[in-house]
């Protein structure tokens, strides 16, 4: 058999082109479009209303950025995912061959490709990717802005304990009050004043740990002999958990502590009292 007897893909495509066009107006298209619409709406609603309810309350803009990203990306991905699911589901619903499972049904339409479908798919997916990238970079670069007078906190990872130190420094609290810390404060919990930008300098004494103040939505590894930096401005009163997010050996599961975000006055009182009392007891006093 010589090659000139063989069909090539392109000619087949051309043969079928009119039929493909007719396909686009058929009941199959309408059925699939309906499924797609339902699923898209479902996905979009999930993205807007469900995903933020799955995630905890965030204590900083960085954390809320993560929640918003999940929402937006779910909404953006919903039509694409819904299309794939709609076609698959439609094809499943139109299975008519249960009676004769032993034998293959007659062949389907020999659709070897469709320039329109492929081209549209490529363009849409490229646009979506450009959007995702734009979104991510915008958010990321906004998070990189470092406040000039932020509170410096040194974070040290040890197998399997976090310890924190607020070095001696002048802290600018809200309303241009300033608080002078004359002697470094060593803490087993992460006690921070509200609305003060914080720069965390993170390092480790042994192996790699992951500094993850969960509800701030930031994370950076603690590496031995290196200092990594991460920023956040806690803007909500309360407490949450600081975790190790990088497997660090035997007691990794227990390497966590608490973060307390307190008011300026509580923080000042705590520092004035030598920073030895549990900060929680001061909050309770203030409330009483």
């Amino acid at each position: 058999m010589s090659s000139n007897q063989l069909h090539n893909d392109d000619s087949i495509l051309e043969d079928l082109a009119p039929e493909v066009d007719r396909d686009l107006h058929s009941k199959h298209v309408r059925g699939t479009a309906l499924l797609w619409l339902i699923m898209t709406v479902g996905g979009v609603l999930c993205g807007i209303y469900l995903t933020p309810r799955l995630m905890p309350h965030m204590f900083a803009k960085e954390g809320r950025d993560a929640v918003l990203t999940v929402q937006v990306f779910t909404v953006v991905a919903a039509p694409v995912a819904a299309l794939v699911c709609a076609v698959a589901l439609y094809s499943l619903l139109h299975t008519r061959h249960r009676a004769s499972l032993e034998h293959p049904p007659k062949d389907g339409k020999p659709l070897r490709g469709n320039a329109l479908a492929s081209g549209a798919w490529l363009i849409v997916s490229t646009l979506l990717v450009v959007f995702l990238l734009f979104w991510g970079l915008t958010e990321w670069s906004a998070q990189q802005v470092v406040h000039a007078d932020s509170l410096t906190v040194n974070v040290v990872g040890n197998q399997w304990v976090w310890d924190f130190e607020i070095p001696a420094q002048k802290v600018r609290l809200e309303g241009d009050k300033s608080l002078i810390i004359t002697k470094a404060i060593s803490m087993s919990q992460l006690n921070l004043p509200i609305d003060v930008p914080v720069t965390f300098n993170v390092t480790s004494k042994d192996v790699t740990h992951g500094f993850w103040p969960v509800n701030l939505g930031i994370q950076v590894d603690a590496n031995p002999r290196a200092t990594t930096t991460v920023h956040a401005t806690p803007d909500r009163l309360g407490k949450f958990v600081v975790r190790c997010s990088q497997l660090c050996g035997l007691n990794h599961a227990y390497m966590y502590t608490e973060a307390n975000i307190v008011s300026d006055s509580t923080f000042e009182a705590w520092v004035a009292g030598g920073a030895t009392k549990p900060i929680g007891s001061l909050i309770a006093k203030g409330a009483a």
Partner: peptide, 8 residues
């Protein structure tokens, strides 16, 4: 985790 947080 979850047992009397803050104890150290």
């Amino acid at each position: 985790p979850g047992v009397s947080p803050g104890f150290f």
